[in-house]
Structure formats: C-alpha cells, structure tokens
Design a binder for these strands. Sequence first.
DNA 1: ACCTACTATAAAAATATTTTATAATGTCAG
DNA 2: CTGACATTATAAAATATTTTTATAGTAGGT
Lengths: 292, 292
Amino acid sequence: MNTKDLAYFKELINQKNFSKVADFFGVSQPTITTAIKRLETEFGSQLIIRDRVHHELTITQSGQQLAEHATSILRELDTAHHEIQNLVQNQIALGLPPIIENYYFPKIAAQLKQQRLLRHILTVEGGSVDLRKGLLDGQMDMALLGSIEPLSYQNLIADEFDRHPFYIYVGKTHPLADRKRIFFSELRHEDFVLFENSFVHNQAFNKLTRRNHFRPDVVFRSNDTHIIMKLVAQNVGITYLTDIVDQQDDVVRLELMDEERPEFITSIVYRTTHILTPAQQQLLDIMHRILA
Amino acid sequence: MNTKDLAYFKELINQKNFSKVADFFGVSQPTITTAIKRLETEFGSQLIIRDRVHHELTITQSGQQLAEHATSILRELDTAHHEIQNLVQNQIALGLPPIIENYYFPKIAAQLKQQRLLRHILTVEGGSVDLRKGLLDGQMDMALLGSIEPLSYQNLIADEFDRHPFYIYVGKTHPLADRKRIFFSELRHEDFVLFENSFVHNQAFNKLTRRNHFRPDVVFRSNDTHIIMKLVAQNVGITYLTDIVDQQDDVVRLELMDEERPEFITSIVYRTTHILTPAQQQLLDIMHRILA
DNA sequence: ACCTACTATAAAAATATTTTATAATGTCAG
DNA sequence: CTGACATTATAAAATATTTTTATAGTAGGT
C-alpha cells in the first residue's frame, strides 16, 4: 500500500473536497478519486459518504478509524525521515526552551566541548509545546523540558534531572524587601510582572492564585527574564520565578512558606522508539552527571 | 512510499539474507535488492552493510532506527485492517481469559442479550499476553484482563472495574479447615496445587512466598480451577485463588491476614486510538454498570 | 581452478498510478 | 425549466513504478 494514499485521505478529511485536495497536492482530481477507491477496496469498507444532497462529505466509522492510523503512520514516516537525516549529518538536534538554555546549557557546554560533542549539537529553541511536537515528529532527537508535574507522555521517555522551587522577587526598595520568607496569600494586592502565558511558570502561578482565591494584578508580561527583573528592580511590580535566572543586584529574593509549593521540574526527554547513538548516549550521560 | 518495502526491509533484518526474504514473500531476489535500494535512496542513508567478507549483514544505525518505525507502521496498518473488518462485520471482538470469562461473562450476558448486543459479540479466549498482543494489532476491539497491578500500557486504555482478594482453599478434612483466617507464613510446609505459570495468580503467589522467604512445594499445576478444587478437596494440597471460582462443597476458604495482600484486578482494556462505535460504547456501559 | 552461495545490474515485462478528456449529478439563479 | 456552476466519477491513454528474467560479479570452500 502506498502511503501517498493515506496522505490524500487525511487531507480529504480535512478539506472535505476532492478537487481542493488535488490542488493541495498538485495532482489532478481523478487521482484523489482513485486513491480513495483504492483504500476502500483495500480495507473492504466505505470510508466516506459523498452526500451531494446536503453538499457535504461525511466520514464513516471505518474512515475515522483509518484516519487515526493514517495519522500515526504518516507521523512515523516523518519522524523516520528527520531522525535519519540527523543521524546522517551526525548531529544531535537538542530542543531547549530559552530559560533552560540560559541556565543549564552553559553548565554542560564546557564538558561537551572537551568531549568533542559540542560541534555535533544543534540547539533548537522553542516553547515546550512546540518542542514536544518537534520531538514527536523527529525534528529533534532530544529536548530539555520544564514542567510543574513530572512529565508523562505516550511515546516519550522523560528523565527528571532537577527541581527548583519558585521564589518571589521584589525590588530592593519594595516594602517587602526585608522579609526573608512570605506566604503567597500576602501578595493579594501586589502588582505582578510575569512571563508570557505560554511558560510553565504561569501554570504554577495560577495554581497558587487559585488556591489562595485571588485574581492577581498582572501589569506586564514579557518572555525575557532580564526585562522582568529590570521592571522588578524599578518597583513596577513583583515577580514569581525560579532561582534559575540571573539575579540583579537591586532585586531581593523571598522564599515562599506555603505548604504546597509548585516546583519547576526539568527533564531530559526523548522518544521511546529512539535508539541512542554513542554520541547521544554520551550527551545523556553528561547531562545526567552534571545536571542531576 | 510503498509499505511493502518496509515489510521487505523488516524481514531482511530478521533473516539477514536477500534470497531467503525473496522466497519468504514469493518474489524474485532482485525485488528485494531494489526495494532496499529504494529505501536507502528515500531516506538518504545506507541501511544495511553487506559484509560479504564475514558472510553477514549488519544493520546501520539508520537502519535500526528505520526498523523501529517500520514495525510501528506495519502494525498500525495491520490494526487498521482488523479493526475495520470487525466494524464492517458489525461485530465486537472481545478478548477474555478463561477465568474471567467464567465468572464475569455470565453476569453481563443476560443484559447483552436484552439489548440485542450478544449476537454481535465474538469472544476470543487467550492468556493475558496473547490478548494484549491481539488487542494491539486490532484482532480484538476490547478485552477484559486480570492483573495484580493496575494495568498501564502505552497505546492501551485500561479501566479497572473490580478487585478481589486472593484466598487460601483447603480440603474440609485438612488440619487447617477450621481456621477462618491465616497468615501466609503459616503455610510454609504445605503442599500446593496451583494454576499454570502463565496465570497472574502465580505472580501474586510468588510475591507472597518471596516476602515470606520460602520455597513452596508445588505438587501439581493445572489451568482448570475445577481440577484444582477437586484435588484440594482430596487433600492433595491446598491452593491460592480468588473467590471468583466455583467453590466446591468439600473445600473451605480461609482469609489471609497478611498486611499487604495482592489483589486480582480486572480491567476493561482497549486501544487509545480506538473510536468506540455506539454498540461498543453500549458494551462498555453495561460492563461498567454491572461489573463495577 | 571450479563449484557454491549470495547480491547486483540491465533490459523487458507486468503493474500501478496519474493524466486528459469527458460524463454524470446535483445546486442555484433567473 | 434551463443553463451555468461546482463537484465527483469514469474510461482510455500516458507515465511511473515495481517485478521478473537473465546474467554478471564476488568471495569462500574444496
């Protein structure tokens, strides 16, 4: 069976229009017709119902079921392509969210260079959602990911290697600056400067606000810790971050005393099906040794 | 890309001989040669090394990686075929290990018949390992499985619906027959009549013997509870079973008093990718309602 | 050196897929 | 009710792909 047919089929389910799918793939319209027929013969079942009365195309139960498998098959193929390409080019594509890259990568870089691995590592930056996707379809071989719960994904292995508590950072001249420790509930009326919503920091932050029943005043969001820290220094607001940031001089760190404090968990993640090359194993070992 | 090439490739990795693979598929030998070449071109990487000096065939890293994906792709295809066939024939293939079939199936059969579902259900008997395999490649749509730990498999959803403790059964005239409760450690010098090794019962039993540091005397094994019960009645030995068996008159059941007692967990299991038909949803509902 | 076992190559044959051209079906506006 | 439009189906021809047949190459063993 030709996987092209599955691609045609999947796109047909998307677009629900034979001609448009043909255009999409740059083939003629009968190509799609015959491809679908081929699949229907192969699987001995009607896959779609061409309901011309209601001017729509419905997918049969069999069709939906096949679509599930088609998705999986096409993804596997895609993964294989990316994965093998990385192998051939003898490079390890390593996904890194910016915060983690800033803090952890410098720690291992020296060791990597010494073992002549650095030149083979191609870092790919991105948010955790994109990285997970890229990992699944083989664009990356491994990724370091941050989360507030231990990661557990189907088809991915996650080795937790570090945990960090979150702290409250306030400006040196802020009323709370001489406190060493604080309860989150005391921050009810503060202004906050936070990360953009896509970061896991916000999941942790939202957990705490929910638990303490208040709606925080978020006056500004950025995706750069340096900017956030500068605004905190200027008393624009306070922030909620881990200690894996470059701390500024005019900013003070307060510990949280709440019972259940979310933690920033960092894990090394790779596909369950991924066979580690010696170089990749070496990288994993270095990460485990230095970061854990 | 043609999935046939992947099948050829996988079999070549198995057999490590082009001509034999050709025979295996009933095609000519150059077919295999060209198929492998096609794959090597498609993925831009050598997949196997034809080492004629040492008279063997090694698989490159890329080849191993591709083999992983090939396995997965071919299994998906196979699953799709089976699954759709069941759909078309409007039957639900339900996997059942014999013990569970005996105890649970009669409970739901009446309800199934009333809802006109019974005729659409095709039961497949087998051990839990075979059932899991059959479930994964689509031969079955669902299965009831027994285990001593909550089931958690990649690609399978497991809904636990019942738990039963294990008991000790002894003959009516056995010295222990008038005890109501007993510690497992007291059975150190007893003779046992047990299930065959493939049953989960043995995992539970072995846990207990290991914990109590003794090697039990297993005088006979069978895969039929009735035979086991009869032998227990005749004082050939005692046994370790759940209460989901037909109890004989001349056999006495003793409760175990140990702190940690393994339990027999029964779960309804199906594929994560499986889209439930109305009939299948109905079956699930009935099972949850009646069995849970 | 010759035989055997195995894989590769080239040309021809057989299959499979796609295109072109056209038919068929139904909607919708007038 | 008709003709324009949008859509999918069908048949035959054109292409592309896969397989076979026939044969060559390579190395090991005797």
